[in-house]
Simulated scan of single mutants.
Amino acid sequence: MYTKIQKWGNSHAVRLPKSLLESVEMKENSEVEIKVQDGNLIIIPIKKHKTLEERIAEYQGEYKCKEWDVGKTKGNEVL
């Protein structure tokens, strides 16, 4: 994909197509880190930690709680 750097007030900007942002699970107001590496501009999405409310809202009811084997005891574990 090719685009142009354009003036935006006293700064400059690059427009990113919506489809490109969606492909990396980003949207308007998503936070990013911008850095220069080997002469290239790198834009890195900042993954924020989801709140409990956000996690519950995404829950689809597919997880079934169950016990799991953690192996044999090795010390003074209480059973």
Rank of each mutant, 00 (worst) to 15 (best):
E31A: 04
I46F: 00
D38W: 05
E25S: 13
N10R: 15
K7W: 11
S30M: 10
K27H: 14
E33V: 15
V78Y: 06
T73H: 07
H49Y: 09
H12I: 07
S23E: 01
N10T: 15
S11M: 12
Q60S: 06
C65F: 14
L20R: 06
E28K: 13
T3E: 00
L41T: 13
L41G: 05
E31C: 01
E58G: 06
V24W: 04
M1D: 11
L21R: 11
G39D: 05
I43M: 07
M1H: 08
L79Q: 05
S30H: 10
E58S: 09
W8K: 13
R55I: 12
I34C: 03
I5T: 11
A13E: 14
E33L: 15
K74H: 04
N10M: 15
I56V: 15
V24D: 00
M26E: 02
E31W: 10
M26W: 01
L20D: 05
P45E: 01
G75S: 00
L52H: 08
I5K: 04
V24M: 04
I56D: 07
I56S: 06
Y2K: 14
D38L: 10
K35T: 14
Y2T: 13
I5D: 03
Q37H: 13
G71Q: 06
S30V: 04
E53P: 10
E77I: 00
G71D: 09
K50H: 10
G71S: 05
V32W: 04
L21Q: 04
I43Y: 01
E67V: 07
I56H: 08
